[in-house]
Computed example of a mutant assay.
Amino acid sequence: MGKKIFLILIMWIVGISKVYAFEFSPIGFDKRIDGGQGYGEFYLDNSTNNTQRYKVKIKSTGKENDVSKYMKIYPSILTVEPKGRGVIKVYGEVPRNFQEGIYRFLLATESVPMPSLKKHGNDVNGGVSMRTNVAVEMEAYVGEVRDDIKNLNKKIIEKNGERYFQGEFINNSPRGYEIGVGFVDGDDSLIEVYSQGRLKGRGKMEVYLKIPRRSKKVIFYDYNNQVFLKDSVKL
């Protein structure tokens, strides 16, 4: 099922206009929340020249499979320095004998206005640079959900002296994945992993990547759980 991202940007321009950037990652939780395994981290990157502050909350989706009341978050107020990164820690655990399946909750951030001092001549004025509100619907699961991802239509394409890997992921599992595609050398050392975004449950994704030199195998990675998926392709 698709993920819903609600993004509201409200900007106040004080003096000269500036470009602001806000980045939230990853966009999935995808943890098993029974048996003490339900821990994940999220990142807020601030590429502005101003300190940004956010309220962070867990909210209900309003759906039958909502597990927001079992989720905990730290910190509840997050301050991110200019050009810095803030970390949000989320943990969930449901009671014993909870029914197996896929569950959801909302992870919400709301920027807290921070006055900044702007000097115009001999006067110093206060201003607010930006407000950003984001609510992301997250997936979690209870019980064993085995990997059921196939990589079909796999091809190695030669073009202008370079090699490219082309394929299509088919996800037969009900849960979603943040997919990475990696390349391994002859010593089974990882050369590089490239994020490909979110592959939703029962969904599919096309991949087309340049193959780094020395690569001997293509591997596939579950970013949020930091494990390699079963399928791989020898080059």
Rank of each mutant, 00 (worst) to 15 (best):
I157K: 10
G167A: 13
F22N: 05
K57D: 06
Q226G: 08
P26N: 05
K31I: 03
G180V: 03
E139I: 11
I73R: 04
F22E: 07
E158A: 08
Y39C: 03
D30Y: 08
I5N: 10
A21G: 07
S129M: 11
G86T: 04
N50V: 06
E158C: 00
N172K: 11
D222S: 12
F42W: 07
V207D: 01
K155A: 09
I27P: 12
K217P: 04
V181F: 08
Y103A: 08
D34E: 13
G15K: 11
P174L: 01
F6V: 15
A21L: 09
Y164K: 05
R163P: 02
R213A: 13
Y223I: 12
T51L: 10
K119Y: 03
L7N: 09
G203E: 06
Q196H: 12
K216N: 13
E139L: 14
F42I: 09
A135R: 13
R104A: 00
D222F: 07
I33T: 03
K204A: 05
T51H: 01
D188S: 11
K210E: 14
L190P: 02
E93M: 01
K234E: 15
D45T: 12
T79S: 06
V142I: 15
Y194C: 00
A108N: 02
N153G: 08
R85A: 00
L235M: 15
L107H: 04
K154Q: 10
S173N: 08
N133G: 00
E139W: 03
L117D: 13
T109I: 15
R202D: 09
L107A: 08
Y194W: 04
S232Y: 15
P212T: 06
D148F: 13
Q166G: 02
N171P: 06
L209R: 12
R32Q: 09
E192C: 00
N122T: 10
A140V: 08
I211Q: 06
N225S: 13
V193P: 01
I88S: 10
K204N: 15
N153C: 01
I77E: 15
T132P: 00
Q37C: 05
N160T: 07
G86Y: 02
P212D: 05
N49T: 10
G197K: 03
V128K: 09
E144S: 10
R146M: 15
D231T: 06
E139M: 11
K55Q: 02
P82T: 03
